[in-house]
Simulated scan of single mutants.
Amino acid sequence: MPIKTLLDFRDPEACKRMVIKIGSALLVDNSGRVEVEWLRTIVNEIWTAREMGIDVVVVSSGSIAIGAKQLDFEEGGRRTLAEAQASASVGQIELASVWRQLLAERDLTAAQMLLTLDDFESRRRYLNISATLRRLLKSGVVPVVNENDTIATGEIRFGDNDRLAARVAQACQADGVILLTDVDGLYDKHPDEPDAERLDEVHGVTDEIHAMADTESGSGLGSGGMTAKLLAAEIAEKAGIALAIVNGKAENPLARAMASQAATLFLPQRDESGRRAWIGGRMRFAGSIKVDDGCVRAVRNGKSVLAAGVIGADGDFERGDIIPVFDVTGNMIAKGLVEYDANDVEAIMGMQKDDQEAILGHAPRSAVMHRDHLVLM
């Protein structure tokens, strides 16, 4: 039974496992110290969920903000990559220590996992993440996950913990994600405007929904913003996972949100298999292909991408890579496993199957992307 309402996050029949993401603006004060008393109420809510039979994984921001204050770095430690990495390496020790201490107060064991985008983009490492998370949860442990900012560079990092939380939810097969932030949810315009209205439910993240987002992180401590949260919701909704944006500024924010129903709930739109969910969640690519309108219609009707419908190839991808498929207007319509290298796709694009063997020098494959390895966006 999937999550259909905010109250279902308290129902172990609908939500057997959840991921709670906590932003830097909530967890760290202006002096660079952890808001321990506030965080203790979160731990109490984690304990309550565990008592109800719900597994909990935490995605915790804050290491850069904590370390930057200790190192006296300006701009929250984000002025340069080196300062961000140094801040994270200092702050992560204190952050992990606080989580261990507070969870131990409720007889809960903490585990730390530091991950990068590369860990999720590699199928083998993704499966290792999944296995580790499931084993920790089976042992009654509360995993505390953060991006490994000490080594992550622009090419191999998420850049925000919202999308990390959605990918962690995929990996541990969670039913729901709660993003704790400093607003009550998604508004149809900037929340400071007097006629702004909060959306209680969203059935699929569309271009119209994206247009409502504020791309800035209001606190200056974090790296996310509403746009990052909508990107996380897109990842979650395609994997059959509900996602809620909840105001976490007060103590016991989960209980308060349930009581007031003040949040935005993004409902699942599909329930992809584990491998297809992994393909749909991929974020980094070596290239892409462009297809004509006829191919777009075929793909949306469950067909494969054939060479005859390909009108362009970009990048230096290799056979077996996961790459996106764009339509003629530049909209991404799918992601999938490509059956040819970029050079071969360019050589046979627009051709019928009977004409491809002479170009390739061998019998052509059944498709450029087979429907079994293709995920609609």
Results as ranks from 00 to 15, higher is better:
1 M>Q: 08
6 L>K: 04
8 D>A: 10
9 F>T: 01
13 E>C: 12
15 C>K: 05
18 M>D: 00
19 V>M: 09
24 S>Q: 05
27 L>P: 01
28 V>R: 07
35 E>H: 09
38 W>A: 04
44 N>Y: 11
45 E>L: 06
50 R>E: 12
54 I>S: 02
54 I>K: 06
58 V>W: 00
58 V>I: 14
62 G>Q: 03
63 S>Y: 11
65 A>M: 05
65 A>K: 03
66 I>D: 01
72 D>F: 13
72 D>R: 15
78 R>G: 00
80 T>L: 04
80 T>H: 01
80 T>C: 05
81 L>M: 11
82 A>P: 00
85 Q>L: 00
87 S>C: 00
88 A>K: 00
93 I>M: 05
103 L>W: 09
106 R>G: 01
113 M>E: 08
115 L>A: 04
117 L>M: 05
121 E>Q: 14
133 L>A: 01
135 R>N: 15
142 V>G: 09
148 N>I: 13
152 A>L: 05
154 G>D: 15
154 G>I: 11
155 E>I: 12
157 R>G: 10
158 F>V: 00
171 A>C: 10
171 A>T: 09
175 D>T: 07
179 L>P: 09
181 T>M: 06
186 L>D: 02
193 E>R: 14
195 D>M: 10
197 E>Q: 15
197 E>T: 13
203 H>I: 12
203 H>A: 08
204 G>L: 03
205 V>P: 00
219 S>Y: 07
221 L>R: 09
221 L>T: 04
223 S>I: 02
226 M>L: 03
227 T>F: 11
229 K>R: 09
232 A>K: 00
233 A>G: 01
243 L>A: 03
253 P>E: 10
256 R>N: 12
259 A>M: 07
261 Q>R: 15
264 T>V: 13
268 P>L: 05
269 Q>K: 14
272 E>Q: 05
272 E>P: 00
277 A>E: 04
279 I>M: 06
282 R>A: 04
284 R>F: 11
286 A>M: 11
290 K>F: 14
293 D>H: 07
294 G>W: 10
297 R>C: 00
305 V>I: 12
309 G>T: 09
311 I>R: 06
312 G>R: 03
314 D>Q: 07
314 D>C: 05
315 G>Y: 08
318 E>L: 15
319 R>S: 14
319 R>W: 13
319 R>T: 12
319 R>I: 11
330 G>P: 06
330 G>A: 07
339 E>I: 02
344 D>K: 12
352 Q>A: 14
353 K>H: 13
360 L>R: 04
366 S>T: 15
371 R>K: 14
371 R>C: 14
372 D>N: 13
372 D>E: 10
373 H>G: 10
374 L>R: 07
375 V>E: 03
377 M>D: 12
377 M>H: 11
